[in-house]
Design a protein around this nucleic acid. Sequence first.
DNA 1: ATAATTCATGCAATCGGTTGCATTATCTTT
DNA 2: AAAGATAATGCAACCGATTGCATGAATTAT
Lengths: 343, 343
Amino acid sequence: MSGPHKEITIYDIAAALSLSPATVSRGLKDHPAIRKDTRKRILDKAREMGYQQNMFASNLRRSRTNTIGVIVPRLNSYFMSVVIAGMEKVANAAGYNLIISQSAESVKKEETNVRTLYNSRVDGLLVSVAYDSESLSHFNLFLDKNIPLIFFDRVLDHPQCTSLVIDNYKAAYEVTTHLIRQGGTRIVHLTARSKGAVYADRLRGYQQALRDNNLAFDESLVLAGNLSELAGAEAARAILAMNPLPDGVFSANDSSAVSCLQALKQAGIKIPEQIIVAGFNNDPISKVVEPNLTTVNYPGEEMGELAASTLIRRLDRLEGASLNTIVLRHELIVRDSTLRKKP
Amino acid sequence: MSGPHKEITIYDIAAALSLSPATVSRGLKDHPAIRKDTRKRILDKAREMGYQQNMFASNLRRSRTNTIGVIVPRLNSYFMSVVIAGMEKVANAAGYNLIISQSAESVKKEETNVRTLYNSRVDGLLVSVAYDSESLSHFNLFLDKNIPLIFFDRVLDHPQCTSLVIDNYKAAYEVTTHLIRQGGTRIVHLTARSKGAVYADRLRGYQQALRDNNLAFDESLVLAGNLSELAGAEAARAILAMNPLPDGVFSANDSSAVSCLQALKQAGIKIPEQIIVAGFNNDPISKVVEPNLTTVNYPGEEMGELAASTLIRRLDRLEGASLNTIVLRHELIVRDSTLRKKP
DNA sequence: ATAATTCATGCAATCGGTTGCATTATCTTT
DNA sequence: AAAGATAATGCAACCGATTGCATGAATTAT
């Protein structure tokens, strides 16, 4: 019943047509030295016999896999799933497969993932690094061999690597400025306890906006956690214990902004009257929470598509490693959670 | 600079230790016929020389890839990302890679994906089918060769395939019964215009609960769409035009339940006083919308983990294809959107 | 008609592990 | 110490597609 079902190889086709495997191999591609009608005979016979090319043999010989490795901190967020969706779309259309792995925010696991993907001989890598990834050394396996490596969202800097980001500094600056315009004077910033540039940039943007508006930067208003739902609720508790009460919150992501907002509401705080709240990412929950959350639209799908297409262009040698950083457009989305003065 | 960096092979290790490649190959594994100290010498030398196993050669020989193919309708939903996260965790721990592709709800694309994954020689397939997949014929490539195929969430029935589901009928029955207990008498059901069993089962559960409570089934209260956000808003419009006004809504997913709920609120309807609303999936938005949405908890991560581990057990011949259907536990989560009579 | 040229195909080595079987080294047993 | 049993290693044939080079066939030039 479940017999081995002998696979059809080019040898079978060759035998069936009294040709050599070499000719069949060439006929199956666009090799110029094959007569048109011979190619047609080969293709027809291949279809008829149900031939499926054996990728391993091909890969082994060509040392190329048409496979792209992806490493992300976690898959289970809306943002990430959208990014991956974008990558898959582009990769699939170009004949590439995606192998996806999660680092679970651990550098150790990230190292393992790199090694695994290296062993799988992926043609290139798309990476968003873990919170505490600082060094690039675990990517040396790829860098040394000049295998293209592209960072997105959480990026590291390296001359050989293209990075895809948004301008986190500017976005945070815009959010903070907006909060100040809406009357914020003591604005809490929820950020990640992380070594990466993303959150550092957002913090800088926040600080600069304060400075440019003659507001003092108060270290105690920066709450660093892991930006989880729980962290948002804890932040709310910390905020409620502050005296005087802050009048604004800028969270570096939406999920903790929302949980913070909800906890504040539950404690009887009026949003936006007493405290205005803004997030980051434009997650679906931002449009559901009441009041709707002001946030920054982060073009996840576009970033995924662009990451994949940039990598593929490089693999196809259509493009060198010249571009170092691609900055995508972000957009401040103002909603009711920060709107005191309705226009 | 970017020289070809000669790869280290078992031949190099063999030469360095004056052993045969065969011995090295065995030493690298757990072959019993290799002396302990020889294995150690091999492993040490391998590490020292920076050996990385060439998967193609290995795959070619063993015709096994340690790769699992995944086909899902769409990646960009919270539910799906959680499922995939669970799969990746299990697969990675067992030394498997995941190749993921999206059918975009199109049978045509699904067919292409199947072929691609087949060509990539995945060892098995995890599939959640597109809305309008009815036939199994495009999986014949796999079924004929007895390559394990496991369905999850949106499943098709086949003697060779294990399916992972929740009891959609029962869950819907419970939701509807709950709605009725809370005073619902004219309950709208939002469902998908789909050929799959999932939504049909939920519809049946809804109908049976009506029947068991002596409520007439009214065809015009069933609104079939694509369960998108937009569909939810449109459903709200339809509901508002109904006379008499329905007093309950049971949506087959959360995102359209939420958008419907919001649209109803915006139109001045009081939830749950005038209309009670329930969803399905326990998406994060269900805990954010006000009032919080009653829904069914769908154990996505567990389903992903179980799908992967079931497949891997079968690949490792630890288990035959005996289990046909695995039903995961669901849970009705009652929240304020349906609570009229507070306990 | 023969040489020169072009075109189409075949030969055979190669990619790097894997594995059945043969062989050699080592250890028991008497 | 010799014979038999057992453990450890090596040999060589694979897996299936690719590709540089050689060969044979067809075409053109002389």
